[in-house]
């Protein structure tokens, strides 16, 4: 069952990546390099050495040369595993995470970048050392899909600590998770950071009424709550506020945060996220 699904995901991702549809887009990460990409407006914090004086003189405002990322990038995919990932109405968030990991992984490998994968819950579940071969992608997808995530909590702090000192400055770090926990990714700011929030519409916007037992997938502890409109409204507000805080935090680090929902086409969403 799991093997089947792993194969499907791998094939789909490979197809998208190797037919060239998205392969280049996904790793069109911008950064230091010699591969000139474009001229753009200077914004504070940019390296002054990259200012394009000719363009600046012509336009009257500061312009900057932008280069595509140096080849042979170091791409680190961190997949935060928690019980919440088992949730999903159309399909599980677990499945989306696996697909996303496959896409990023294969596109990195196809570009000849070094790929590192870490599966982390409250401890490091699995760590694949940097490599250029695609074997670890399959292995990690299998790991994600086959492991029982219930009773697991995503501890972003331990993830940050794990990457700290292990990954050199300037790597591309993609954190995939559902971001329900409070987190502080400040230490990852030296990398090019992408935070991808995988969610299901129903969990953000549950429209159920009545007496219901709710169980926390992260701890397996439950309680009975009679749900109704006003309570759910408050819940939505609370969750929105939580998400907004995390968005703000990640923006402040100069990183990018994006949502992928279970009912969306993962490939398309991935292109949108990494291309823009």
């Amino acid at each position: 069952m799991v093997e089947q699904r792993v194969k499907e995901i791998v094939l789909k991702a490979k197809k998208s990546v190797f037919t060239g549809n998205i392969g280049n887009h996904l790793t069109a990460f911008k950064g230091d390099g010699i591969d000139f990409a474009e001229i753009r407006e200077y914004s504070s914090g940019d390296d002054v050495r990259k200012i394009n004086w000719k363009a600046t003189a012509k336009s009257g405002s500061l312009k900057l040369n932008e280069f595509n990322e140096e080849r042979e990038l170091h791409i680190v995919v961190v997949s935060m595993l928690s019980g919440g990932l088992t949730f999903g109405t159309k399909r599980s968030k677990q499945d989306v995470v696996a697909e996303l990991l496959a896409l990023v992984g294969f596109s990195a490998v196809s570009n000849g970048d070094r790929l590192e994968i870490a599966l982390i819950s409250d401890k490091v579940e699995r760590h694949f050392k940097p490599t250029k071969s695609s074997g670890i992608v399959e292995a990690s997808i299998y790991e994600i899909l086959s492991s029982d995530l219930l009773d697991k909590q995503a501890d972003y702090k331990s993830a940050v600590e794990f990457l700290q000192g292990r990954v050199k400055r300037g790597a591309i770090v993609v954190v995939i998770g559902d971001f329900y926990e409070d987190l502080d990714l400040t230490l990852l700011a030296k990398h090019q950071l992408y935070a991808i929030r995988v969610r299901d519409h129903f969990e953000e916007n549950p429209n159920i009424n009545g007496e219901l037992g709710l169980i926390d997938p992260a701890t397996k502890k439950g309680t009975q709550i009679s749900l109704d409109g006003s309570l759910l409204h408050k819940f939505r507000e609370e969750l929105k506020e939580h998400d907004r805080k995390i968005d703000e935090h990640i923006f402040e680090l100069g990183a990018k945060v994006a949502n992928i929902y279970t009912d969306e086409d993962t490939t398309l969403r991935a292109i949108q996220i990494f291309k823009s």
């Binding site: 928690s82 019980g83 919440g84 088992t86 949730f87 219930l150 559902d178 329900y180 969990e203 953000e204 549950p206 219901l212 037992g213 709710l214 169980i215 926390d216 997938p217 992260a218 439950g222 309680t223 709550i225 309570l231 408050k234 819940f235 609370e238 969750l239 939580h242």
Partner: peptide
Amino acid sequence: SIYFPGFRFIKKVA
């Protein structure tokens, strides 16, 4: 009963 990822928040609210 259902597993509900936003458990922490709904519990806080309720």
